[in-house]
Design a protein around this nucleic acid. Structure first.
Length: 524
RNA sequence: GCCCCCAUCGUCUAGAGGCCUAGGACACCGCCCUUUCACGGCGGCGGCAGCGGUUCGAAUCCGCUUGGGGGUACCA
């Protein structure tokens, strides 16, 4: 691979574009790798929400498909009858839509390779299981889970690798009949090859060699009549003409089993790419213990989908040494399996937050206002229907907040004083009020503002400058107490903006209340 | 236990034997801008897990150790 790539890169750079772009393998993929149509799939099991790990896998598949102009297929692996739910299916679909990962084939979108729910494909699995049975590559097994458990335990205690002992491999018809009479429901086991090696040729990891001795006769059909994952995935990927299986590293160890099934059925194996796990800050697998893992929870927490996509793309993939911010189009253009790294990646909320802030700053004001409304509504700051002036004012407030937010939900905490009376003053704000000159100053300002016409940024600022000269104070000495009186805090947008946005009447009221508060403080 | 994967700043990563005195981003710290906060600008802190090889030369190749992750189900 390497020599060819190096050669190609150098050759092509000489041929068509100067010496710059030899780091990424777009040439390779364009020129010699992809001859068949690219078809990839994301195949979640509907047993919960779309979590960030799954979302990242989906994203990588989606990017790969879009980059190569191939097909992205969504397949629901719902053979676990106990844990699969409809709500989960919906949750996964919602998550995908929010991230903008549209599928070419899948639920609600037939592409000729359906059905796209595994429970709808039972006949297919049965057919190929029968084929294996007929070929002597599979057999019925009547051992109960309890018996298996016990034997497994014993083997482990004896220091052996726990593998199935093949005791049902050569069952006579009488023995089988006896078991059936006992009411036992059989499973079907695959008769694995137990000598030699099975090699997974992985696009991310290179050749990974497994000794066939470690592969036992695993179950391909459960006693409830459902296929197991390792079997169904092979049948589906083959029938759906999947060209590249891009999935989490947790599937790497199971891959040799699947390869053996491909071989037993005489099918060509697809290309594999196993991407590393996402870990929590403590370097264990990311889970709820580490915070939100559901993609839709991030939506609720005020993250933008483009930030999520950008961040997820960077977890285990990079384009070059310097760039971090990518639009979705750029991701599609630049994405390559060569940029995928082998090491597991720790999910870093701080970086996601930073990136979200970047995208909030880039978002249009119109969009931002709409995004904010649910949070403000929920906080009781605004009502469902807004008048024209209210809408205008909201725009102004959101505009002020745009550079100050990392997540949308922070709007609630940061804008309280625009919507609610000042009931409490922060300790530091109290300090700013507790000055001899403050009561008089605030009263003066209240008087001035009560009749100021028009009441806007320029006129307000002018009055501040006048007062500043009159009192011969540094501007800050005026501004800090005013901010304290109007917001109860020491932090707000620029004071003139803040004043105008709070509104004339309310400002006058709060200035007087602030003056009163200052007097009380001084009297203490 | 057995099998497999992985190992560069705290985190994500660049790095394909000399371009490395190891680059970027986030985080953190400092300075500038400034009415506070944020944004923005500038700067700083900080890393090749360890040990052995191979080589004139190793972050890069090999081995071992250590550490982390995954698998080993009638879950997917």
């Amino acid at each position: 691979m390497r020599p060819l790539r190096t050669f190609l890169a150098v050759y092509l750079s000489k041929q068509e574009r100067g010496p710059v772009l030899l780091n990424k393998s777009r040439y390779v993929s364009r020129r010699c790798m992809i001859l068949e149509r690219v078809r990839v799939r994301f195949a979640p099991s509907p047993t919960g929400y779309l979590h960030v790990g799954g979302a990242r896998t989906a994203l990588f598949n989606w990017l790969f498909a879009r980059h190569h102009g191939g097909d992205f297929i969504l397949r629901i692996e719902d053979t676990d009858q106990v844990r699969s739910t409809e709500e989960s299916v919906q949750a996964i679909l919602d998550g995908m839509s929010w991230l903008g990962l549209d599928w070419d084939e899948g639920p609600g979108k037939d592409g000729g390779y359906g059905p796209y729910f595994q429970t709808g494909r039972l006949d297919l699995y049965k057919k190929y299981a029968q084929e294996l049975l007929d070929a002597g590559r599979a057999y019925y097994c009547y051992c109960t889970p309890e018996e298996l458990d016990e034997r497994r335990k014993k083997m482990q205690e004896a220091g052996e690798a726990p593998r199935y002992d093949q005791r049902c491999l050569h069952l006579t018809e009488e023995e089988a009949e006896k078991y059936r009479a006992e009411g036992r429901k059989p499973v079907i086991r695959f008769k694995a090859k137990n000598s030699g090696k099975t090699i997974v040729d992985d696009l991310v990891r290179g050749k990974v060699v497994f000794d066939n001795e470690v592969i036992d006769d695993f179950v391909i059909f459960k006693s409830d009549g459902m296929p197991t994952y390792n079997f169904a995935v092979v049948v589906d990927d083959y029938l759906m003409k999947i060209s590249h299986v891009i999935r989490g590293e947790d599937h790497l160890s199971n891959t040799p089993k699947q390869i053996q099934i491909y071989e037993a059925l005489g099918w060509e194996v697809p290309k594999f790419a196993h991407i590393s796990m996402i870990l929590g800050p403590d370097r264990t697998r990311l889970s709820k213990r580490h915070g939100a893992t559901s993609v839709m929870q991030y939506k609720a927490d005020g993250y933008l989908p483009e930030a999520m996509v950008n961040y997820l793309a960077l977890l285990g993939w990079s384009y070059n040494a310097t760039d971090n911010l990518f639009t979705k189009d750029q991701l599609v253009e630049y994405f390559s399996l060569d940029g995928v790294s082998k090491n597991p990646a720790v999910f870093d909320l701080a970086k996601l937050q930073w990136m979200n802030g970047v995208y909030i700053r880039e978002a249009s004001l119109d969009r931002l206002v709409e995004l904010m409304k649910p949070y403000l509504l929920d906080a009781g700051y605004i009502t469902e229907e807004l008048s024209q002036p209210e809408e205008e004012r909201l725009r102004g407030i959101v505009a002020e907040m745009q550079t100050r937010l990392k997540t949308l939900d922070e709007i609630v905490e940061l804008t309280t004083y625009f919507f609610k009376d000042v009931e409490e003053y922060e300790e530091k704000a109290l300090k700013n009020l507790k000055k001899e000159y403050v009561p008089e100053l605030l009263e003066r300002l209240a008087d001035i503002f009560s009749t100021l016409e028009p009441f806007n940024q320029e006129t307000v600022e002018k009055e501040f400058k006048k007062l500043q000269e009159e009192y011969d104070l540094k501007l800050g000495k005026l501004i800090h107490p005013v901010r304290a009186a109007l917001t109860g805090r020491t932090v707000s947008p620029g004071i003139y903006d803040t004043i105008v946005l709070i509104g004339q009447e309310e400002v006058v009221k709060r200035l007087r209340a602030g003056a009163q508060k200052a007097k009380e403080l001084l009297a203490e």
